[in-house]
């Protein structure tokens, strides 16, 4: 499981960074989206990987912490997803505005001279 997860994060980050450096705004936004998926998975993995372990303990009962998943990264991921989603949507609007004003989807607002 560790290998699959780390490979998944690695592939997402690799393609995200590559896309981020591309000159078209659409590629940049897809790159950012891939990167944010990778980061979300990464935060999730920081709670250590567990299978079939609940994150919520019973009140009052004596518990063994090893039998439970860490709930905090799960809560953090939720927040990070919401914030990432909102800012990406905002970026999309700016991207469209830039496309409308400049007539090109190049990140610098003009086509490079050949």
């Amino acid at each position: 499981m560790e290998l699959v997860l780390s490979l998944g994060i690695g592939v997402l980050v690799g393609s995200g960074v590559w896309l981020l450096f591309r000159p078209r705004t659409y590629q940049v936004i897809i790159g950012l989206a891939l990167l944010s998926y990778a980061v979300n998975l990464f935060i999730f993995s920081m709670g250590r990987l567990t299978v079939n372990a609940p994150p919520v303990v019973q009140a009052g009962a004596e518990i063994d912490p090893a039998a439970f998943a860490d709930p905090i990264p799960q809560a953090l991921v939720l927040t990070a997803i919401v914030i990432g989603f909102a800012t990406t949507a905002l970026f999309l609007v700016v991207l469209l505005a830039s496309r409308g004003l400049t007539g090109t989807d190049h990140v610098d607002g003009k086509e490079p001279e050949r």
Partner: peptide
Amino acid sequence: RVRAGLHYIA
């Protein structure tokens, strides 16, 4: 502004 903003946000 939009051009500078695009870079700033990214």
